[in-house]
Lab assay of single mutants.
Amino acid sequence: MQRVNMIMAESPGLITICLLGYLLSAECTVFLDHENANKILNRPKRYNSGKLEEFVQGNLERECMEEKCSFEEAREVFENTERTTEFWKQYVDGDQCESNPCLNGGSCKDDINSYECWCPFGFEGKNCELDVTCNIKNGRCEQFCKNSADNKVVCSCTEGYRLAENQKSCEPAVPFPCGRVSVSQTSKLTRAETVFPDVDYVNSTEAETILDNITQSTQSFNDFTRVVGGEDAKPGQFPWQVVLNGKVDAFCGGSIVNEKWIVTAAHCVETGVKITVVAGEHNIEETEHTEQKRNVIRIIPHHNYNAAINKYNHDIALLELDEPLVLNSYVTPICIADKEYTNIFLKFGSGYVSGWGRVFHKGRSALVLQYLRVPLVDRATCLRSTKFTIYNNMFCAGFHEGGRDSCQGDSGGPHVTEVEGTSFLTGIISWGEECAMKGKYGIYTKVSRYVNWIKEKTKLT
């Protein structure tokens, strides 16, 4: 034993070699072989497995989906700052455009905790909710729209109204504003409101030439003092309507412009014939205590009207009353817009006519005020429907199939267009061939041609 100890002390290297040989010859039971080890760690190889990531292109799944990435790591994937920024906006807080917040056709661009709407022409605001041009839906104005110097929408209202708090709607500024039905039992019968379409306001006024200088022999019209197929109006439903009495009662109609003036057809009036105007009328054979009678003290036909040349060209006249009318729910003026808007309103496509005229061709006159909704007829169809001249200051309205029309005794009465609950004068009943005849239409004086003249002559002093 002493000898062994001496050998170990003198030859430590020998001992180490012996131990190493023993270990190498022993069977290893701690580690699995290569094949079995792979069965336990069965993990798919990654895209760049075996390579240094710093030297390969980034992978979106590896960089940002398996674990949260930084902007720089995302930049490695896209290799483009702009594309990385677009991805980053949604990656950080989701897609803010998912709810489609942009209105009126706006395009949404996502941002971090926010979004941006790219608005089409005519709109602005956070969600493109603000109209900035009158060309689109009248700028959301209830009545009139004008573009300011910086191309912003400025709404306005006709006389007797003021802008509401929203700067879009119009509200009454006087007790009985024009064009409004205020009798409670008839307010439910107000005709369907007309909503502004998209309009090209630059070209809204037709490029028409008034044929002022045409000389033409007097034409022989049949029954051209021209509501057939209409309905009984309720008291106060058309408070701007008046009836004219002269040699015979209810020979023509008219509309209240203001307390002192009536507008009617020029062919209705004769110099030297006494005319009485009755406002607030409903049943011409009954006294309903809503009527107001006034005498006409002055007749002003349009300066281009000449019955000797043509009885229905420039067929418009103004009547001055001896005493002002007292405005109330049964006696209310009709609204008159400017030339541009009167023309736009007419193009809405349908209007209402009213009167006490004959209820059928050569038949009896109506006792109760009649009204009828009539569609506008395109000019080409209008011209083809008659052998008589249709001037540019006239328009056609009615039904091709016949059966409904204005008729004798309705002449001078109103053709009105309702705009968001307020009625505007767009025409004056003038003439036609018979009444409600198939293929024939009622012919009306186009008020847009005469609004400046009306307003100039009827100013209240």
Rank of each mutant, 00 (worst) to 15 (best):
V296R: 00
S350T: 15
R449L: 15
V183C: 05
W88D: 02
K68E: 04
R43H: 02
K446S: 09
H415A: 02
N48L: 00
N343F: 03
E98F: 11
N166A: 03
E320T: 01
H289G: 11
V263D: 00
P239Q: 01
S448W: 02
L60Q: 03
T389G: 15
Y91H: 08
T209K: 09
I210T: 15
K126V: 09
P235F: 07
D200V: 12
E433D: 15
S107G: 08
D131K: 09
D110G: 12
S430N: 10
L327Q: 04
T417H: 03
A308I: 07
K438A: 08
V416N: 04
K457W: 07
R140S: 05
N135T: 14
E208G: 06
V278Y: 05
A149I: 13
L325Y: 03
W88G: 03
E281C: 11
E73R: 01
R162P: 01
E320F: 02
R83C: 06
V331C: 05
H303A: 08
Q96S: 13
G351F: 01
V77S: 05
R75M: 11
I256W: 01
L376R: 05
L211Q: 15
T81I: 11
K274Y: 06
P197A: 14
R404H: 15
L244H: 03
D322N: 07
Y22Q: 12
L346S: 04
A173W: 06
P333W: 01
I454E: 00
E418M: 12
F176N: 08
C145Y: 02
C170I: 01
V242T: 04
Q219P: 15
K137G: 14
V92E: 13
S114W: 07
A397V: 07
T190P: 12
P44L: 08
F388D: 06
I7N: 14
R294V: 02
G253N: 02
V174Q: 09
S187L: 12
I429S: 15
V296E: 00
R384T: 14
K260D: 03
V202P: 15
E124F: 10
E288N: 08
T264G: 02
K339G: 07
F251Y: 09
S156Y: 13
T332H: 06
N283A: 07
L163W: 02
D33H: 10
E320P: 00
S49F: 04
P101G: 04
Q408Y: 10
T218E: 13
S411T: 15
E10N: 13
V4L: 12
D405E: 15
C252D: 01
V278H: 06
I299F: 08
H400D: 12
Q96K: 13
T133H: 12
N306F: 05
T386L: 08
N151F: 09
L425N: 02
T16C: 10
A337Y: 00
V277Q: 00
A164E: 06
E98I: 11
G58I: 00
L41Q: 05
E10I: 14
L425F: 03
L130E: 14
Q185K: 13
N222G: 13
E66I: 05
D150C: 04
V4M: 13
K234D: 10
P44I: 14
A173G: 07
S217F: 11
E259F: 04
C157K: 00
G413K: 06
L60S: 03
N213T: 08
P172Q: 07
N135W: 08
R298I: 01
N36Y: 05
R298C: 03
N113S: 07
R298V: 03
S350A: 13
Q185C: 07
C119I: 01
G50S: 02
C268Y: 01
E54H: 00
G432I: 05
F144R: 00
A250D: 06
C128W: 03
I336N: 01
I210V: 12
S385A: 13
N203M: 08
Y115G: 04
Q241W: 07
G398F: 03
K152G: 13
H302N: 05
G230W: 15
R449Y: 15
I309N: 11
